Amino acid sequence: MAVDEAGRVRLVGAVPLLHPEQQIVEEMLAGWRNQQLCRNLQFATIDQRTRYVHRFIDHTGEFPWNWTPVHVEEYFGDLRSVKHLSHATLRGQQAALRAFTSYVANPDYGWDRVCERQFGTHPAQVFFEWNTAAHVQDNEGRPRRRPYSKQELQTLFDHADDEVARVASSGRKGWQQAYRDATMLKVAYSYGLRFNELRHLQTVDFATNPHARQFGAFGVCKVRYGKARRGSPHKPRSVLTVFSWTPGVIQDWVANGRGEPGTLDLFPSERGGLVGEPTLIRRLRRYIVDLGFPDGLDLHSLRRSYATHLIEDGWDPTFVQDQMGHEYASTTGIYEFVSSDFRNATLRAALQRTTQAALEGEPG
Rank of each mutant, 00 (worst) to 15 (best):
V3E: 02
E5N: 10
A6T: 15
R10F: 11
A14Q: 07
P16N: 10
I24S: 04
R39F: 06
R39T: 01
N40K: 04
D47W: 04
T50K: 11
V53W: 04
H54N: 13
F56A: 01
D58M: 03
T60R: 00
W65T: 00
P69C: 10
P69L: 04
E74D: 15
G77T: 08
L85G: 08
S86D: 03
H87N: 11
A88I: 11
Q93V: 11
A95G: 09
R98H: 15
S102E: 15
Y103Q: 10
V104W: 07
D108W: 15
F119M: 02
T121G: 09
H122E: 10
V126L: 04
E129K: 15
W130R: 14
W130V: 14
V136R: 11
Q137L: 14
N139W: 11
P143K: 10
P143M: 12
R146H: 11
P147A: 14
P147K: 14
Y148D: 01
F157H: 00
F157W: 05
V164H: 03
V164D: 03
V164A: 05
A165I: 12
V167G: 06
V167K: 03
A168I: 12
Q176E: 01
A178L: 03
A182F: 01
V187K: 00
V187M: 07
V187H: 00
A188T: 03
Y189I: 09
N196K: 10
E197H: 07
E197P: 07
L198G: 02
L198R: 03
H200P: 00
L201N: 11
Q202T: 15
V204D: 14
D205I: 10
F206L: 06
T208G: 07
N209A: 09
P210Q: 12
A212E: 12
R213T: 13
R213H: 09
G216A: 11
V223K: 07
K227Y: 09
S232H: 15
R237K: 04
L240D: 05
G248D: 10
I250M: 06
V254Y: 04
A255F: 00
E260H: 12
L264V: 06
G273F: 03
L274I: 05
G276K: 06
I281W: 15
R282E: 07
F293Q: 03
L297G: 02
L299N: 01
L299Q: 02
S301F: 04
L302K: 03
S305G: 06
H309A: 05
G314Q: 00
T318G: 04
V320Y: 02
Q323P: 00
G325W: 01
T331W: 08
I334F: 06
F337W: 06
F342W: 15
R343L: 15
L359V: 14
